[in-house]
Simulated assay, not measured.
Amino acid sequence: MNRRRMAFATALVSTAALALTACGGGSDPLDSSSDADSGGSSSSESIIVGSANFPENELLAEIYAGALEAKGVKVSKKLNIGSREAYIPGLEDGSIDLLPEYSGNLLSYLDDKATAVSSEDVFAALPEALPEGLTVLDQSTAEDKDVVTVTKETADKYSLKSIGDMKGKDLVLGGPPEWKTRPTGVPGFEKNYGVTFKEYKVLDVGGPLTVNALKNGQVDAADLFSTDPNIIANGWVMLEDPENQFAAQNVLPIINEEKASDTVKGALNAVSGVLTTENLSEMMEKVTLEQQEPADVAKEFLETNKLSS
């Protein structure tokens, strides 16, 4: 959604909000009146922090929220909003102000003709692709890519090391709804690798439905995230991506420019300065395998890195 497609994105707001209401027990996660403020600051600054609908993004949103509260910013949270089709329009219309993003997927969503793949090139291309009124702040070294993942048994059976090795294997792929049409999903596999699938099963966004489907043999290959501790815990194989279908995916904040004060930028850039792939993976192990609350894990991270006061 570059500037030429802003009108289309905005038109999706009502549809996305309606769908989210149906999934959320009758409340609209983009309605700022539906949650009480989570911070008790007396600062005149206020930020509505959102997240996409998967655990890692919720964790990152909690980290951003905690870092801002520590600087006296009044924070309210609208978590588990949904996919970019829902939350990018929300950022544009002010329903939310801030959200954790992943550089490569964000660029691909905004500009389906983007060719940048390296961290530096993707970050440099984002400002031109962003809708008017939105900006991104410093990116972290933490990176979490989509990875096509198979069990070791499937990898051994079909001699799978890279995505291209799935060509002609008549496999079932599982992943999020968006992968049916996005260039980083099913269309990209055919375009970049000549790979088609016997069936595409719509699951969740790298969450328990996807993990269980792969574990139980309901799918042969699945879209997971490279920081997902289930991959190592189960001995699964992440297929190589030599054609760079998945660009660099550095974690960074996307925010409404009007809310990006020096205080806000300082707090969020400090988070990006200490967030790494390694500590993000460690936190996700606590969230997904140990079933700790994202807010508790975020608080521990901020305290460890002296960002909580």
Rank of each mutant, 00 (worst) to 15 (best):
167 K>D: 01
36 A>Q: 07
261 S>I: 11
234 N>M: 06
12 L>F: 06
34 S>I: 02
110 L>K: 08
253 P>E: 15
223 D>C: 06
263 T>P: 14
87 Y>V: 12
225 F>C: 00
13 V>I: 03
239 L>C: 01
73 V>I: 15
220 D>L: 00
67 A>T: 11
207 G>F: 01
4 R>I: 11
25 G>I: 15
248 A>Y: 11
70 A>Q: 11
274 V>E: 12
289 L>S: 05
42 S>A: 13
135 T>A: 04
230 N>P: 01
75 V>F: 13
170 D>M: 06
74 K>D: 07
266 G>S: 09
304 T>S: 09
300 E>L: 03
23 C>Q: 14
238 M>F: 02
146 D>M: 05
146 D>T: 01
211 V>W: 10
99 L>H: 11
273 G>T: 11
9 A>H: 02
40 G>S: 01
87 Y>T: 13
116 A>E: 10
18 L>F: 14
103 S>W: 04
287 V>R: 06
132 E>Y: 01
138 D>A: 14
21 T>A: 03
82 G>T: 10
99 L>C: 14
164 G>L: 00
299 K>L: 13
11 A>Q: 09
19 A>K: 07
174 G>H: 05
67 A>N: 11
109 Y>T: 07
158 Y>L: 00
290 E>M: 04
121 D>P: 06
155 A>F: 01
142 A>D: 06
72 G>Y: 08
190 E>I: 00
130 L>P: 12
198 K>P: 05
265 K>C: 04
14 S>F: 01
101 E>G: 08
67 A>P: 08
265 K>G: 05
64 Y>G: 04
224 L>D: 02
179 W>M: 03
68 L>Q: 09
185 G>K: 02
279 N>K: 09
297 V>R: 02
115 T>S: 02
106 L>W: 04
120 E>Q: 13
223 D>F: 06
229 P>W: 02
35 D>Y: 10
277 T>S: 15
